[in-house]
Every structure is written in C-alpha cells, then in structure tokens.
Design a protein around this nucleic acid. Sequence first.
DNA 1: CTGAATTTTCAGTAATTTCTGAAAATTATA
DNA 2: TATAATTTTCAGAAATTACTGAAAATTCAG
Lengths: 180, 180
Amino acid sequence: MKLTPLSQSLVLHFGEMGSRWGLNRTLGQMYAVIVLTEAPLNADQISEALQISRSNVSMGLKELKSWNLIKLQHIPGDRKEYFTAPEDVWEIAKTLLVERRKRELDPTLTSLRDALVQEPSSSEDVYAQQRIREMHDLMEMISSWSGELENMSSGKLATLLTLGSGLSKILEAKDRLLNK
Amino acid sequence: MKLTPLSQSLVLHFGEMGSRWGLNRTLGQMYAVIVLTEAPLNADQISEALQISRSNVSMGLKELKSWNLIKLQHIPGDRKEYFTAPEDVWEIAKTLLVERRKRELDPTLTSLRDALVQEPSSSEDVYAQQRIREMHDLMEMISSWSGELENMSSGKLATLLTLGSGLSKILEAKDRLLNK
DNA sequence: CTGAATTTTCAGTAATTTCTGAAAATTATA
DNA sequence: TATAATTTTCAGAAATTACTGAAAATTCAG
C-alpha cells in the first residue's frame, strides 16, 4: 500500500505529534493511516505503508487496542485481521478523554489520597498536605467532570462545545435555569 | 534541603507521571518539590533535594519557565534566584491547559488546514479530506472552547466543574428556553 | 488432528532522550 | 570596571525507549 502525498504528509505530522499526545511516533503514524484510509487495513499493509517491521506493527496494534482506538474486522475469505477507526471523530475524542484520564489522572488521585491519610511529621508536612488537598480536590473534580463528558452523546457534546462565549452566560443563568 | 518522607514519595510519583503529562521525570519531580514547599527555592536547593546536577536543574527551570509554571522571586541580600509555584492550583491547571493546547492542538490544526486546501489527487484523497475536515472542525471547537475556559475566573471554573451531572440538565433547560 | 497462515513475543540492537561536568556567559556588587 | 557569584550552554556519556528479525504461539481450513 502506498500513501498519496496528501496522506503521507499528515501521517508524518501525526508521527511527530504522537509523543506529545502520550503515544509515540509509530503509534501516531499508524493511527493516522488507519483513520485516513477508508478501507479496513491489515498489518502487512500498515507495515508497508509506513516502512516499519511487521513486529512493530503488531506491537502498535496491541497498544491501539488497549486504547480502544481501533475496531477489528474480518473480511470473508481472508484469514488476516483488518482494522478501522470509529467513523465518528467524536467517539475517538471521547475515547482519548477516557483513556487519558485513566492514565494521567487516576493514578495520581490514588497517590494524593495516600498522602492525605499520612500523619504529618512536621510543619512542612502540614503545608504540603494543604497543597495536596487542593490538588486532590481539583483533580477529583476534573476527573468526575470528564466522566460526565464521556457519557454524553456526541450531539450533546457538540452543543456544549459550540456554546463558546455563551458558556459564561449560561453559568450565570444556571440557578434560574434549574429553578433553584 | 532534605525532603520529608511524605514529600519524597509524592515527588517520586510526580516523577513517574511526568512523562505521561508531556514533561519528563525530572521536570515532574522538580515541580512537585516547588509546589509542595512553602518557601521559595533556589536551584541549589532543588539540585540537592532531588540529587541531580545543577545544570540539569538549570535546564529544568528553563523549561518550567517556558510553561509559565513557576514564578521568579528575589530574596533581599541574596543574589540567587528563587522560585515558587502559583498559590492557586486553579491557576496552575489553567496554565497547563493553555500550554498543552499550544503544544498538542495548535500545530495539528495548522497541519490539517494545510491538508484541506490541497487539491485532492484521487478518490482516496477525497475520503481523507472528509475525515480531515471532521478532525479539523472538532479540534477547532475544542481549541476555542479551551480558550474560553482559560479566560474564566477560578471561581467560575469551579462552578462549571462542580455542576457534574447538572451539566446535561442545564443544556436541556437551555434548549427549552430557546424553544429549539 | 495436521500443517500452513498469521500473529505475538522477546532478546538484542538502534535511536532518542535525558543528564552531567566543564567551560562560557551573565549578573551585580564593591 | 574588575571580579566574584551565579546561571546557562553544550558536547559527550548514561539511561531510556523504540525497533527488528527470528522463534514461539495461535488460529483455522482441510
């Protein structure tokens, strides 16, 4: 499989961004190819398109599966496994939100809780625990809020995101809206 | 400067999470020390607390400055530079949001726009551009919405995050109100 | 079952990133 | 403005992460 120049350049860009997105270069490139190609792809095709080894593709696919970013398909009469990305980009965004929360927030929440139940051994510890408390409360809020978004339909999410500067106004009107 | 066991264990955790947060281990550890310590710290103190070289601290501080995560202070009668973290964790969160948007979204938005103005050279390109359009619109929405959050006061942000499941209800109420 | 097709694993290697010490640059006091 | 204190830079070393090819494991048609 050969990529068109258009896809090629985006694939390279996704590769460069991969590491910033918590993946890595190959994973970024692999996902770009899968997203930008209409037909389901098998490992050999990905390997050829990106010029990387078959085993590297295997490891990458494993990782993309663990992120729930790809869907496995079978093509009648072919024993190979084929992969596609969800059709709805909102689904993809939600999945990324879920997974990043799991990886970037949840472990720290646990760690912060552990620190909060320790007995402070000095005045430094008392101060540290204050800050830990603040961080914990903030992260917990973000985490539960993110859980909220994860359970919204794509349509509702779109509504929310389109609000733009209307958001502030709605917050002001919140009490009225909820008849409080 | 020696860390208490309480701080020590959180510093290690922040180090482990550092790379997942788009920083790296040392940067995560450095920031933990600065956040958890009440007094402003100088480079030598950080170097000693984390057992890393002075030059490494210098590079780390440079990076933390570029993220706008630390504030420089001077202590009368001392030529060294001292650093603290913002007192308000909400400020820190907002800064992280701003910077991650800049690093993780903006470059890709540019790249997607470039791809959209290209002339498609085949039917594959036509499909790819559809998906690129979807990604672009989604990312643009997220980006502008994130800009919205960045300009909110901490108080308003807290209100928004505390809404929890109320969020859906408010969106519904809004639609009713506007007779949609 | 058998064995060919396919996928996965993994030890070793390659590439990348991070860290250090020494030297250069900057800062500010006397 | 000379010099001592401090910070920054950077080439090479160390550590980490990613990649490969070969072998092992799995899958499935006959």
